[in-house]
């Protein structure tokens, strides 16, 4: 494992923990898109079905289990435990516009036409756009809490670091997976606008707010 891959995983894990702690400590999921979190739960579930079919390493298995469990915990907090604080009125992105096209695409463009492989491909495609309901919510309300901005930054930078990891692997292991690379590029591009705001505002101690 190279440094980019490792930092990417740590960043992803940090994002998940930041979000869990934010909701749990404040007893509120205000400003968080339940739809994005639901999509991430679907992403992890469909991607990590290989937990049952092959073992790679203790690290790999434990990270997968943590990702799946925490995504379900987050969904549970939003739609059940702290349901009263969930801002559903602003969480209006139509997720079928993400799920249906990515599902169709995973049947058309995949490495192998088998159930597990199609589900894995679907999860890669869906992950690349799963943050859109959250970004849509931020743009709709015109602001995000600072802690939510940190969450979004950690989540966005994780896939960016994976891009460097893939360059590394191509260079030194002659390994590359075009499906993951293209989806990773799309995912990173979607965050660019947010990265700009994060660097120019949040890192300078200001709250992330968009011009009206």
């Amino acid at each position: 494992m190279n440094i980019f891959r490792f930092l990417g995983d740590i960043s992803h894990l940090s994002a998940i923990i930041i979000l869990l702690l934010k909701i749990w400590k404040s007893r509120s999921c205000a400003g968080i898109s339940g739809k994005s979190q639901l999509l991430f739960a679907i992403v992890f579930t469909t991607r990590y079905l290989d937990l049952f079919t092959n073992f790679i390493s203790f690290y790999n298995t434990s990270m997968k289990v943590v990702y799946v469990a925490s995504s379900y915990a987050t969904v549970w907090m939003i739609y059940s435990k702290f349901k009263a604080t969930y801002d559903g009125n602003h969480d209006t992105f139509r997720v079928e516009f993400l799920i249906v096209p990515t599902a169709i695409l995973s049947f058309l463009v995949n490495h192998d036409f088998t159930p597990l492989e199609i589900l894995w491909t679907f999860s890669i495609y869906l992950e690349s756009v799963a943050i859109l309901p959250q970004l849509f919510m931020v743009s709709k309300t015109g602001e995000a809490e600072t802690i939510t901005s940190h969450y979004l930054f950690a989540l966005g930078i994780y896939r960016t670091l994976y891009l460097f990891n893939w360059i590394w692997r191509y260079q030194f292991e002659e390994f590359f997976d075009l499906i993951a690379i293209v989806a990773g590029l799309v995912q990173t591009v979607l965050y660019c606008d947010f990265f700009y705001l994060y660097i120019t505002k949040v890192l300078k101690g200001k709250k992330l707010s968009l011009p009206a």
Partner: peptide, 10 residues
Amino acid sequence: HAVHIAHDEL
């Protein structure tokens, strides 16, 4: 060469 992913990534 394009290698089918071994799913060793997360």
